[in-house]
Every structure is written in structure tokens, then in C-alpha cells.
Design a protein around this nucleic acid. Structure first.
Length: 919
RNA sequence: GGGCGAUUAGCUCAGCUGGUUCAGAGCACCUGCCUUACAAGCAGGGGGUCAUCGGUUCGAAUCCGGUAUCGCCCA
């Protein structure tokens, strides 16, 4: 079989994905098995795959594939979110390109365009997820505006309204003047910007006294209805209760006092514009101030402003400033002033606080069970550090503004009575009419008389039902799917939506099913670039995921992303991580090439080295699987992958395969071959959730498979009992091998020149189980057990065992002595630290017996080692002197001058050896 | 301004109940090798006062407080 030395993902990934689809492996229907469910955090229907999705969905796929292989009935339910603001913005932009303004068309026409757009471009992201290997049940794909999903949303609205949780109120809301809609707090992004601080002079009424007020928004002066100072501020105390004249519009307003004022800020005087600032609004309510709204919906000035009517707010700012300057009202302008300004997440317009009539959901009471369930770990958040943040938010939860002035979304089901502010709430116009007739007592009311609210609901008002409504659990809570799959198992999401999505899903779960929506929440990090910057289009630092997949394979990208993303920590993405992932795939591929190309000879006996290696690796594999299970249970997926990475690369490839590998062109015995193939299969299986494609490819090639078989539906290996001693023993063997390799390198001895190894220990004490392994890996001609130390040999020590390798002339005695002395010094230092503890009475009295025992063992080991080292050094020195004596005798036979030269040289050496550490 | 979290090797991170020479991993780096599975590789190596100051303790990277820096959330 001719297998290329480089694995090529492009040749396999699409093939196996199609195979999985064709065989329906992603499908799930309720049955007798235990269910394991994940609902996807629905991406925006307009969305395209970015690195955050890649990470998030890789994690979900790992969890679901593992569960499936463990024999659970695993369902990963995909879908998309209608994302009202984002999608509407997209459609508006598209129409504009075609020369159509939203204002020119009516709601029905707009929605027709929007649906067409959705049909054509929506859900592209789901196709992209397939390239990643996502094993979603695509036949169950949901969309938040599907008919059944929409009906659930409306039902919930009506229900909450009837329960008294939903109310209509005037509130200061975040207004997006570009999209002309209210946006939630979560959709406002505060950025630090360079702005100016204007110092404006106001004249006190009927006095020749002026007050200077600092503001960043001079245009709002037109809406001022008071000026406020701190009640304790000596500078202004005398003015409280007097009137002051608003510049430009010459409106007299009161000077009031409130402790809210920060005396240190600006001049310590605050202008109050209740209509356009949240804090000012609160003060206005408290002091019963007039509210003057000077802005239109699009952020231009209205007639209440009296001047500059129709101008945009930013144009008006300049015009007002200019006029103030002309009239002598500008004291100064501080230019390098930094303040925080809110921007709309969707349209990037500067948010305008605005008083508006909106729908609200009362949260406090609803939030209680959701808070409790997280605090008592009924819903577990991984990592747990997010619990504190969650609590803080839930304890300070504010009412939720759920209405949006948009068309794309779920239209709010309230109907206004003719020429009235009165309304009824109902799921159909007919039902509304019925209610309206009863409410008014007027049976002649017609459907046309009622006017449905123009607004739609916040997108999150449908998302919060997602885990329930995808199984139709709102409309039909007893249905088979819902009772089987709900509550779901894991939710995987980013920390930025913990509050406005995760928390609300938990709330909805308790309100509508008296049950949590999921058992575990896995919080992933945010994907950033390698400099720690957020990935964004404008920075151009976000790689195109599909390009990465093309370049490194989906498996490579999955590994690359995961290797460096512990839960809840941001991931600093660097393309060389995916390179590492690809290299890992190649390593597996080449191990497969090696094994696949072996000729099996059934006549051959199993070599001793192979037999023990099989035993060892079996133990090591079981140990790793146990660790792996533990890592999964704690959602430490990065660690789990690293565990497998090292297991495959170091233990399996570098140690196990090197031990059992027959020499060139030699066959392998069938026992070892069978065991190795079995190990390989197990390794592939435990690796499969992380790297589904290459594991399937190799699994299909490593043995004959029938059509319809797949690793993805095979049994996940479980970790059996293992011989811990065997693993420890082999660790010592590894150390021995490393030492011998180091000696070869230092002495420049070729790998293929045989060495003899002498162990200063009794054979029965040493435990020579891995002797044959040592011989093979280190190219040893023999292993002898000796009672006395050896001369003319290099030595090394593993734990407390001495080893000697005779090298004759190659042994540099001076260097040997120096090395041993270094080690001796180190060991003496170690013994000192141990003795410090053991000599400490407090330690002996307080430390647990186990810890003391450990220290005593350390002491004994160290003392033993020191003894060994000292003897060895003394021996070397003795042999050195003998050698020198022989040399001297020869030297004396030589001419006089030469003798002087040599004696001098020897003198220097002797001085070196005896001036330190002389016993 | 309020809250939460972090600071360990050049980089990204483990270190879970304070106790093994506990200071670790991967990558990067350095040296030597194109050695018949793999140069996308093999073998070997160097590198950290655990941010800082103090406290608790027989014992602190680990627990507690102060300081500094950074990040996130909320206002």
C-alpha cells in the first residue's frame, strides 16, 4: 500500500461528512436510551462564520460526539436567530442600493423584501458549520421566526401580560436615531472619545451675576429646565431658589439643590435636561421639573428647541456654540476632554437618551428562581468564577425594555381601541376584537377599528425561549420531544451574553416549565488576535475561517483553537496554532503509515521487549482514559486534548512504537501487531471528538469495514484498571534511556555502536522487566549486574541506582569528577532542606504523619545517594592518582627538560583535584 | 464611580484540599542529525525571586490584607 507521507485533509473531509449525512448519524429521535442534548446558540441569520463561532461550535461538537459514542441518544439542534436590528439594517441597506427608502414602502412590502432576503442569504452560516464537521441534526433546524416559534413568543407575551409582568411605561431609553428604535442596554457600546467640555455662562435672573456651567452637550441647553448645585456648596448656597436665564431661548428656570451634584466636576454647577439625560430625568422627577423634548426621532431638533429646528444634533452643537460665543456666553472650551459615549452596536450611531413609551417586563420576581438555581449549582456554570458576576447582575436586575421600533420581528400583539390610548392584548385580531367589544361594551366595533401596535419585540424575547420552543414546549409541554430532550445538558456560549441570554433562558425555563433549561453552562473565552485585540472587520485581524480550513483542514483548525482555550479565558488566536494542529494530524497519519506497512509473520515469536511494551502501553492508555474522563467531567477540554496529544505523540509514537518497531524489512509477529492495531483503534476513538475527519479516515483503513460502519457511532473506550507500578517502572527506564543517549551525544558515540551497560545492583533487586527494551532503544550489547563500582567507565544515577558504561580511553576522569561533585553538592543542599524540616520540632509535632514519612524517605534516599557519590568520587580520584604514578615513572626515563614540563603540568592537575572536597 | 477577575519561562496557560526537588506543559528558542513512519520530523539543551509589600502557618505560587498594572461587566 502506497500512502503519501503528508496527510491531505482536503481529500477526506468532505467525503466523510457526506458519508455521515448519508447514514443519518446526526439524526436523533426519542427512544429508550438516555438523551444528551445541546441546542446551538442560534447565530444571526445574517451572520457569517467567524472565529468565535469556530471555537464555540468545535466545543459543542466535541461534547456531542463523545456523548454519542458513549451510547447516549445525542441531539445537537441547530438553528438561527432572526436578529431584528441586524437583519433589518441589512435589508434597509439593500433596498437603499436599489433606490428604495424604507419610508417609502409599507410594513407588508418591507417584510416581503426581508423574507426574500432571508431565503436567499440567510443561514449561510449553517452551511459553513458543516465544513467544520459539526454533527448537528440538520433536519431539526429551527429559525426564531418559524410559525410555531413565533406563536410561542406571542403566547408568552400574552401570558406574561395577563400575569401582570408586562407593562407599558414612559422611560428613558437608549434611542438609536439611525435605526429609529430603542435599543437595550446590552446593545449600547460605550467608547472613550476625545470631546470638548464647554464652559457656558448663565445669567441669574434680575441680577448682574453669572454662573458658569460645564457641559459636553451644549445643544441640549435648549431643553434645560433647571440648574442644580450641591446643597452644601458654599460658592452657590445663596443662589438656591432663585431663577436663572437659559441662554439663547431666554427661559427663566429655577436653581435647585441636590446631593447628586459632584462639586469637583467642572464648576460644580449642573444644568438639568430631563428629556435627554437619564440622571437629569431622575432629578427632574424628584424636583418636579418640566420636561422639554427637543429632538425628533432621527436626532434632529424639533420646534421645542425654538431655534435651529430641523438641524441634526451634531450640526446644532456647532451652531449653538457659535451663537453662544457671539452672545458672550462662552467662558472657555476645554479641548482635550475624554468622556464615554454610547454607540449602537448595530448601526454605530451615537445613542441618544430619550423618553419614550415602551413595553417593559418586570424582572425582579421572575429572576429569583433563576438566581437561586445558579447559586446552589442546580445549573452549573463552568468556570465557576462567573457565578459571582451572575449573582451581582441578578440581584440588581432591572426591568427589561422589550419593544423595538422595527418591522422585522415578532409584532407586539396589542390592539389600540379607536382614538384611544386603551388597548387589548390578544393573539389574533379576532380575539382582540372580542376583547375590545367586551371592554368597550360596544358590539358594533369592527376589526378595522382596531390598530395593532407597530412595534416588534426585542430579539432576545424569542431567544430566551429557545431551549423550550425548539421542542414546541410552550404550545405543547407534554409532547414527546420536549419531555425527552428537555432539560438539555450543556449550553456553550461566550461570556458577553451570560446576562441577556443565558440568565433569561433560565428565567424562562423556570417560568414555563418549572425546570432549568440546561444542566451545565460552559463559558468559552473570546477569540482575540495574538496581540490581545478583539477580532474585527475594521482591524482586518480576523482570519477567514474557511480559508483556514482549506489550508490546515478542519481537524487542524479545531486542534489549534482548542489547544489554547481553557474555559473562560480569552483565546489569543495565532495561525501557528492551527499549524500545530495540522502537524498533529500528520503525526497520526505517519504512525498509521508505519503500522499499516508492516508485514505480519504468524510464525514469529513475540519479542520480549514487545511483550512488556504491550503490557506497559495498555496500562498507560487506561490511565490516560481515566484522566481524560475526569477532565471532561470538569469541562477542561484544552487539558483533555493536551493529554491526548502527549499520549499519542510521546507515549505511543516516541516510546511504544519505537520499542516494538521491527528492524528494516523485517516482519512483525502477529501478537504485537494485533495489540498495536487495537491500541491504535482505541486512540482514534478517544481522539475522534476532537479530530473527527482524520480519525474516521484511518479507522476505515486500519481494518476492513463494512459499508455503514463509522467510528463516530463506535463505542467510546473506557478506562480499566491499570498497573501503576508498571508505569512507574517504565518512567525509570525512560530516564535511563535518556541518560545513555546523553552520554552518546557528549562522547560522540554513534547510535549504532553497541555499548555495554553495568548496573551496580543485585539482579533480583533491580527489576529488569524492561531490560530488553533498554537493549533495543539504546543499542546495548549486554546488561550486567555488578557488585562493585567500575573503573574506566562513565557513570550515571537514576533515583538510587548506579549505572556504568565502560568507555576505556574515552573517559575523561577530570570531567567525571567535576560532574559528580556538582551532583553531590546539589544532593547535599537538598538534604539540608529536608533536615531543616525534620529538625524542626514544630514540624514534627504539627505535620501529618504522611508528610513526615515522605520527608524521612527523602532523607534516606539523599543520604544513600551522597554515600554513593562520595565513594564514586573517591574511587575516581584513586584511579587517577594510580594513572599519574604510572605516568611519572615513564616520564623519569625521559630527558631532563621534558620532565620539568610534565611535572609542572601534573602539579596543576593535582592541585585542582585536591584543593576541594578532599575527604 | 460600583462590581468581578487576573498577574507563574520569550508567548499561551496548568498548578484543584497549603506539604515529594514544586516551580510544570505546549509553543518558541539553542545544539546536533535529511538515522528507511513522519524535517509538518528525531535526539539533546538552556530559560522563571510565581507582580509587589506585609500577615497567618511548622510549612505559602497556593490562604488573608495593602499597593501597582491589566482585563471584563455595570453605571
Amino acid at each position: 500500500m502506497d500512502i503519501p507521507s503528508k496527510y491531505n485533509p482536503a481529500l477526506t473531509e468532505d467525503k466523510w461528512y457526506q458519508y455521515w449525512l448519508d447514514n443519518g448519524f446526526f439524526r436523533s429521535e426519542p427512544d429508550n436510551r438516555k438523551s444528551y442534548t445541546i441546542v446551538i446558540p442560534p447565530p444571526n441569520v445574517t451572520g457569517v462564520l467567524h472565529m468565535g463561532h469556530m471555537l464555540n461550535n468545535t466545543i459543542q461538537d466535541i461534547l456531542i460526539r463523545r456523548a454519542r459514542m458513549q451510547g447516549k441518544n445525542a441531539l445537537w439542534l441547530p438553528g438561527t436567530d432572526h436578529a431584528s436590528i441586524a437583519t433589518e439594517a441589512r435589508v434597509v441597506a439593500m433596498l437603499r442600493e436599489e433606490g428604495i427608502e424604507k419610508s417609502q414602502i409599507n410594513r407588508e412590502e418591507f417584510l416581503k423584501y426581508a423574507w426574500e432576503w432571508k431565503k436567499k442569504h440567510g443561514g449561510m452560516i449553517l452551511e459553513q458549520l458543516k465544513k467544520l464537521g459539526a454533527s448537528c441534526d440538520w433536519e431539526r433546524t429551527k429559525f426564531t421566526m418559524d410559525d410555531d416559534m413565533s406563536e410561542s413568543v406571542i403566547r408568552v407575551f400574552i401570558d406574561l401580560y395577563n400575569k401582570g409582568y408586562i407593562y407599558r411605561g414612559v422611560r428613558m431609553i437608549n434611542w438609536d436615531p439611525k435605526a429609529k428604535t430603542a435599543v437595550s442596554n446590552e446593545e449600547v457600546i460605550f467608547k472613550e472619545v476625545q470631546s470638548k467640555l464647554y464652559y457656558v455662562r448663565y445669567k441669574i435672573d434680575e441680577k448682574d451675576e453669572w454662573l458658569t456651567i460645564a457641559t459636553t452637550r451644549p445643544e441640549t441647553i435648549l431643553g434645560d429646565t433647571a440648574v442644580c448645585v450641591h446643597p452644601e456648596d458654599k460658592r452657590y448656597k445663596h443662589l438656591i431658589g432663585q431663577k436663572i436665564i437659559i441662554p439663547l431661548v431666554n427661559r427663566p428656570v429655577p436653581i435647585i439643590a441636590d446631593e447628586y451634584v459632584d462639586r469637583e466636576f467642572g464648576t460644580g454647577v449642573l444644568k438639568i435636561t430631563p428629556a435627554h439625560d437619564e440622571n437629569d430625568y431622575e432629578i427632574g422627577l424628584k424636583h418636579d421639573l418640566e420636561v422639554i423634548n427637543i429632538f425628533n426621532e432621527d436626532g434632529t431638533l424639533n420646534e421645542n428647541a425654538q431655534i435651529f429646528t430641523g438641524e441634526d444634533r451634531f450640526v446644532a452643537r456647532d451652531l449653538v456654540t457659535e451663537k453662544l460665543r457671539e452672545d458672550g456666553h462662552i467662558d472657555k472650551i476645554k479641548k482635550d476632554y475624554v468622556n464615554k459615549v454610547g454607540y449602537s452596536e448595530r448601526t454605530e450611531a451615537v445613542i441618544e437618551p430619550r423618553l419614550s413609551r415602551q413595553w417593559f417586563l418586570r424582572m425582579k420576581e421572575l429572576a429569583n428562581p433563576a438566581l437561586e438555581s445558579v447559586m446552589n449549582d442546580t445549573v452549573k456554570i463552568h468556570p465557576a468564577k462567573f457565578k459571582n458576576m451572575y449573582r451581582h447582575w441578578m440581584e440588581n436586575v432591572r426591568d427589561w425594555c422589550i419593544s423595538r421600533q422595527l418591522w422585522w420581528g415578532h409584532r407586539i400583539p396589542d390592539y389600540y381601541l379607536p382614538e384611544s390610548d386603551e388597548f387589548v392584548v390578544a393573539d389574533t385580531p379576532e380575539a382582540a376584537l372580542d376583547l375590545a367589544r367586551r371592554k368597550t361594551g360596544n358590539p358594533s366595533l369592527d376589526i378595522e377599528d382596531l390598530k395593532q401596535d407597530e412595534d416588534v419585540l426585542d430579539t432576545w424575547f424569542s431567544s430566551w425561549l429557545w431551549p423550550i420552543s425548539v421542542f414546541d414546549g410552550i404550545r405543547d409541554p407534554q409532547n414527546k420531544d420536549f419531555t425527552y430532550y428537555y432539560p438539555t445538558n450543556d449550553l456553550v456560549t461566550a461570556p458577553d451574553i451570560l446576562f441577556f441570554w443565558v440568565a433569561r433562558m433560565i428565567i424562562a425555563g423556570y417560568e414555563y416549565n418549572n425546570e432549568k433549561p440546561f444542566h451545565n453552562v460552559y463559558i468559552t473565552g473570546m477569540v482575540r488576535d495574538k496581540f490581545g485585540r478583539k477580532m474585527s472587520k475594521s482591524l482586518g485581524n480576523s482570519p477567514e475561517p474557511l480559508d483556514l480550513i482549506r489550508k490546515y483542514g478542519a481537524d487542524g483548525v479545531r486542534v489549534g483553537m482548542l489547544l489554547c482555550s481553557p474555559a473562560g479565558n480569552d483565546l489569543l488566536f495565532d495561525e501557528n496554532l492551527t499549524e500545530q494542529g495540522r502537524n498533529f494530524g500528520n503525526k497520526i497519519w505517519n504512525a498509521f503509515r508505519l503500522v499499516k506497512n508492516w508485514k505480519v509473520d504468524p510464525e514469529l515469536d513475540q519479542p520480549k521487549a514487545s511483550a512488556i511494551a504491550v503490557e506497559w502501553f495498555n496500562a498507560r492508555l487506561n490511565q490516560s482514559i481515566r484522566i481524560l474522563d475526569d477532565q471532561y467531567s470538569k469541562y477542561r477540554l484544552s487539558e483533555a486534548l493536551m493529554n491526548l496529544y502527549k499520549l499519542f505523540w510521546d507515549e505511543f509514537s516516541s516510546w511504544y512504537l519505537e520499542i516494538i518497531k521491527p528492524s528494516y524489512k523485517q516482519s512483525i509477529d502477529s501478537k504485537t501487531f494485533e495489540a498495536t492495531t487495537g491500541f491504535f483503534e482505541k486512540l482514534l476513538k478517544i481522539l475522534h471528538p476532537f479530530i473527527p475527519f482524520i480519525t474516521e479516515e484511518i479507522w476505515q483503513l486500519i481494518r476492513d469495514r463494512k459499508d455503514g460502519e463509522s467510528i463516530m457511532v463506535s463505542d467510546m473506550p473506557t478506562g480499566g484498571d491499570y498497573d501503576k507500578k508498571m508505569i512507574e517502572r517504565f518512567e525509570k527506564t525512560k530516564e535511563t534511556v535518556s541518560s545513555i543517549r546523553t552520554i552518546r551525544k557528549e562522547k560522540n558515540i554513534p547510535d549504532k555502536s553497541p555499548l555495554s551497560l553495568n548496573v551496580k545492583e543485585k539482579e533480583e533487586v533491580y527489576d529488569n522487566r524492561f531490560g530488553e527494551v533498554l537493549k533495543k532503544l539504546c543499542y546495548l550489547s549486554e546488561i550486567n549486574f555488578i557488585a562493585k563500582k567500575m573503573e574506566g567507565a562513565v557513570s550515571f544515577i537514576v533515583k538510587t541506582t548506579e549505572f556504568y558504561i565502560p568507555l576505556g580511553e574515552k573517559v575523561n576522569v577530570e570531567e567525571e569528577i567535576r560532574k559528580l561533585e556538582n551532583e553531590l553538592e546539589y544532593t547535599r543542599g537538598f538534604l539540608r532542606t529536608v533536615m531543616q524540616k525534620l529538625d524542626n520540632e514544630q514540624f514534627i509535632n504539627n505535620a501529618p504523619e504522611k508528610v513526615i514519612q515522605i520527608e524521612l524517605t527523602k532523607k534516606a534516599d539523599a543520604e544513600e545517594k551522597i554515600k554513593v557519590l562520595e565513594e564514586r568520587i573517591a574511587g575516581l580520584k584513586k584511579s587517577f592518582i594510580r594513572k599519574m604514578r604510572g605516568l611519572m615513572i615513564r616520564i623519569f626515563k625521559k630527558p631532563y627538560l621534558f620532565i620539568v614540563f610534565l611535572v609542572n603540568k601534573i602539579w596543576v592537575k593535582l592541585k585542582y583535584i585536591f584543593n576541594e572536597n578532599c575527604p
